[in-house]
């Protein structure tokens, strides 16, 4: 059979699954707030319907990286949620100073390192179909593969982007994470990003480190 006949046969079989070039769309995403990251990711942000992981010690910026996504999101009157343990809380003043709409950020404080309860809280947040992105701080043992898989299914059903922040140095890198970022020293290393060549590193300064301008504002001694 000639090639053209093969091609025409394939077209007939796959007719309902084929789309034209102008109809191709990537999965929707929540912009990270860091243009270099958005340009690198296929879906230009934290992918909806997927679970992402950012790990690294606190103070190296995993939380600050996630928080970058919130101001533009809330200004568009879209919702975000944050789940954190009892002893370490998210400070809202930084968000306030960046004109974030705090009425669109729902906070859950004090999950008790109980994986079952944590999964239940995440399930309830997702089932409202309200949130575009949910950040979850996890400072205990890494959630197992089965939990991440369940979370991913929920995220796909409700089209929400889930970002887990872990302070472990060697967290369990479940295959169900669509994106894995690591903050280490002055770098942010992208260890996994679906359909993108990895690993890829970015300077934190380039991405989001804005501590010095914040500190030196109205402080001539530091600014100089």
């Amino acid at each position: 059979m000639s090639k053209t006949k093969h091609l025409s046969q394939l077209r007939c079989q796959l007719a309902r699954h084929l789309v034209s070039c102008d109809q191709i769309r990537t999965a929707s995403a929540v912009p990270t707030g860091c243009p270099p990251l958005d340009q690198f990711f296929l879906w230009s942000g934290w992918p909806k319907g997927e679970v992402s992981l950012i790990y690294g010690s606190e103070g190296l910026g995993p939380t600050a990286l996630w928080l970058k996504a919130l101001p533009p999101l809330t200004q568009r009157q879209l919702w975000a949620a944050w789940v954190s343990p009892q002893h370490l809380k998210l400070c809202p003043w930084g968000l306030f100073q960046k004109d974030c709409d705090l009425s669109k950020i729902f906070v859950v404080e004090g999950h008790r390192h109980n994986p079952k309860q944590w999964l239940w809280i995440m399930g309830e947040l997702l089932s409202t179909s309200l949130f575009e992105i949910i950040g979850c701080h996890w400072d205990h043992l890494s959630p197992p593969h089965s939990q991440i898989q369940k979370l991913r299914k929920l995220a796909q059903r409700y089209q929400c982007s889930i970002v887990i922040l872990s302070q472990q140095q060697q967290p369990l890198k479940s295959p169900f994470y669509a994106t894995i970022l690591r903050t280490q020293g002055p770098l942010v290393e992208i260890e996994r990003a679906l359909h993108r060549p990895t690993p890829k590193s970015f300077q934190r300064r380039v991405l989001y480190a804005d501590l010095m301008p914040q500190l030196s504002k109205k402080r001539k001694a530091i600014a100089s």
Binding site: P92, W93, L102, F106, Q117, E124, T128
Partner: peptide, 21 residues
């Protein structure tokens, strides 16, 4: 929806809500 969620979390003794500066 948020009120329903808050009620459910409160019943489970999980603290939740919005930031009040």
């Amino acid at each position: 929806k948020v009120h329903a969620l808050s009620g459910l979390l409160r019943q489970a003794e999980v603290h939740s809500g919005f930031f009040q500066l």
